[in-house]
Design a protein around this nucleic acid. Structure first.
Lengths: 145, 145
DNA sequence: ATAATTTAGGACTTATTTATCTTAAATTAA
DNA sequence: TTAATTTAAGATAAATAAGTCCTAAATTAT
């Protein structure tokens, strides 16, 4: 569905968002540990999110990543920054020209699934997700036993 | 969403199903042409579908692929044969242990999308898809101009 | 100023998916 | 029974995704 890079990207943003609430700026090491992801790959992804203005960064000692007071950030912003919009528009059978006017055999059935994914991504706010994360209702990685 | 192999697999089965209605047994060349896919790769996929008892094959002159009078074949049977069930069960953020009891931050939102994909795959019959294909309402590849 | 810390960027490596090639086995028709 | 046709199977190749490494640039603290 989403690429591995996008999965890590979403989790990274959520962790940074959570830390930003107390004005902390986690670095790559802390982020990778919190979301259980490979450090150098996570660095690449965060870099990309900075270029897309989803995340912000500061170099040097006590540097790291943070979010601008960004109450309007949505899940879709992260997905678009990393995977682009294909997952929301592409034909499930890979036809280059698939539309309601010229549909693949499962176009009609699939459109509602695709629309569901799109709505979910558009309507889910990072702020809302962080709230549940803070409450301990949800998790960014498997719990230790 | 689905792998390329799965996309080709679904299209191949639909074309074979359509041809089977008039007792034809298309070979790999005909299938690949009809669904606009690479021949050797399509051969591999059809081979796999034969091993999974989705398709049946006959070797030698006038050989090819066919379907047993299989009115109960569903979309999900093809997906399971090629991609397996991960797409219907895996966490959108890749957590190994993600469930309603121990959810990732977007578990709740995503479950309904995933369930939609599952229902679609379970409820869509190959027979139904072939009917619309025969009626010229849907297409297996982009139309020539 | 200098040394330490941390992100940025590019080149590189590895793994996986997609696709091809080659030979063998089965079937059919002449 | 022989030649032609077609799938089966395994090895190989190419393309893409995932992940690593190295050096440079920026910032901070001493």
């Amino acid at each position: 569905m989403f690429s591995k890079a996008c999965e890590y990207g979403i989790k990274a943003v959520l962790f940074v968002a959570k830390q930003s609430e107390t004005n902390l700026r986690p670095n790559i090491k802390e982020i990778s540990k919190a979301i259980n992801s490979p450090e150098p790959f996570t660095a690449k992804i965060c870099q990309q999110l900075v270029r897309s203005n989803v995340l912000f960064s500061k170099k040097g000692p006590n540097g790291g990543f943070y979010l601008e007071q960004n109450l309007k950030l949505k899940l879709i912003d992260i997905v678009m920054a990393i995977d682009g919009g294909d997952v929301f528009t592409k034909c499930i059978l890979g036809l280059s020209q698939c539309s309601s006017k010229n549909p693949c055999p499962i176009h009609d059935q699939f459109v509602s699934v695709r629309t569901g994914l799109m709505s979910m991504s558009e309507n889910t706010t990072i702020l809302g997700l962080v709230t549940k994360l803070n409450d301990g209702e949800t998790f960014l990685k498997a719990e230790m036993s």
